[in-house]
């Protein structure tokens, strides 16, 4: 853990942003999602990023892109999982198409705003309950992204790379 400029405890920075962007770009070739503040300095540098007004639409678009041969990655905050579930289960899971979700785990640190706290608590149990594999970026570093890409697109499965506050230079 480290201390940020506002004297708050946050997780360690894993790699500089340019390196994270490089790893994302070499493992995926199609991006969408709904911005989270942790992605502020990442999204503008992703080639082939597709706007979506909601997380569920991003998931559905990624399903279409996968059918056409892309390797998609959808970026979202953990709260967006609440909107995604039906699309994930009714599209990717039902038709056996892979997807990597890059999810920011908001609300797990004590100082984080109250609106994030429940999602911080329930994100992992939720993913476990619907049998979605998680690759933890804080533990595995960039390997989490490579392993997730390999898992999702070899097996045509949904999986999550979980990023923690501080893992990315905001």
């Amino acid at each position: 853990m480290r201390i940020d400029s506002k004297n708050r405890e946050i997780f360690d920075l894993i790699v500089p942003n340019h390196q994270l962007i490089e790893v994302l770009s070499s493992n995926f070739n199609w991006f969408s999602g709904v911005p989270d503040s942790m992605f502020t300095r990442i999204i503008p540098h992703l080639a082939d990023y597709h706007f979506s007004p909601r997380e569920n639409h991003a998931v559905a678009m990624a399903f279409g892109a996968r059918i056409a041969g892309a390797k998609p990655c959808v970026l979202l905050q953990n709260s967006g999982l609440g909107l995604c579930l039906d699309a994930l289960i009714g599209l990717q899971r039902l038709y056996q198409k892979g997807l990597v979700l890059l999810v920011t785990q908001r609300g797990e640190l004590e100082w984080e705003e109250i609106q994030h706290q429940d999602w911080g608590k329930y994100t992992l149990p939720l993913l476990e309950s619907i049998n979605i594999q998680v690759f933890d970026y804080n533990q595995l570093g960039c390997d989490a992204i490579m392993k997730a890409s390999d898992f999702a697109y070899t097996n045509e499965e949904i999986c999550v790379v979980l990023l923690h506050r501080g893992n990315v230079d905001e």
């Binding site: 279409g64 059918i67 056409a68 998609p72 039906d86 699309a87 039902l94």
Partner: peptide
């Protein structure tokens, strides 16, 4: 034809994703 069995409300988004690659 891609017949959706579920994913209610997502047909247009699926098509947008398809078209973005085709």
């Amino acid at each position: 034809h891609l017949y959706l069995l579920h994913g209610m409300g997502e047909a247009l988004s699926v098509a947008i994703g398809l078209r973005s690659v085709l």
